[in-house]
Amino acid sequence: MNSAFIISLLQGLLGTVILSSLTFIFGGILGFIIALARISPITVIAKGTGVYIEILQGMPLLVMMGLCFYGPGIFGYDSLSPLQAATFALTLYSSAYLGEIWRGCLQSVAKPQWEAAECLGISRWHRMRYVILPQALRIATPPTVGFMVQIIKNTSIASLVVGYAELSYNAKIINNSTFQPFLYFGIAALMYFAICYPLAVQSRVLERKLNVANR
């Protein structure tokens, strides 16, 4: 056990946190657009988003990483740095899942709420903003926090194709020189656990708290 190794693992942890945060921000924005598009009254948009979701959910994240890493260069753009490529792939991937989660939340707001807003002559945007979203937010919080755990775990494979140095990459590098897999992968696992477990617990607590109506 060497303090340099521990520092390296902590640096990896920082990389994981940075990538996860970027993914959550961008994936959240895109996912929100996807959720709205999915319930759009225009069939082409709704169907098109459905196909987008099907494709992204039917493909391993690793393949997505490869496409995002090699794709831009081929289509004449500057090639992306590992962090950019990993964020790009994870953003697309998370947007599909978050979009589906949030679509479900929007649709689970009671139908009369939509109809009442329409009857009152509230515009489409205002209906979303002031009637549906505040109610959907309540339902959406627990699964969203739960999905953050998935994002954090998924960042672990950002090192495989695109070579972004995060926690599991640093752990592997250390293992390559020390040959103590139980020790260093164990510590890495505990570090992941230390971020993910509180989120998972929080998700459950929120679920209990916010689900007052069905208790």
């Binding site: 755990v149 954090i152 775990k153 998924n154 672990s156 494979i157 495989l160 599991s168 752990a171 592997k172 293992n175 040959f179 103590q180 897999p181 139980f182 992968f185 164990g186 890495a188 696992a189 992941y192 656990f193 993910c196 477990y197 998972a200």
Partner: peptide, 17 residues
């Protein structure tokens, strides 16, 4: 609450060691 990648490293490299 831990990634599959770390689990498989732990198990496979661990048993090998």
């Amino acid at each position: 609450n831990t990634p599959l990648l770390i689990q498989s490293y732990f198990l496979i490299f661990g048993t090998a060691s």
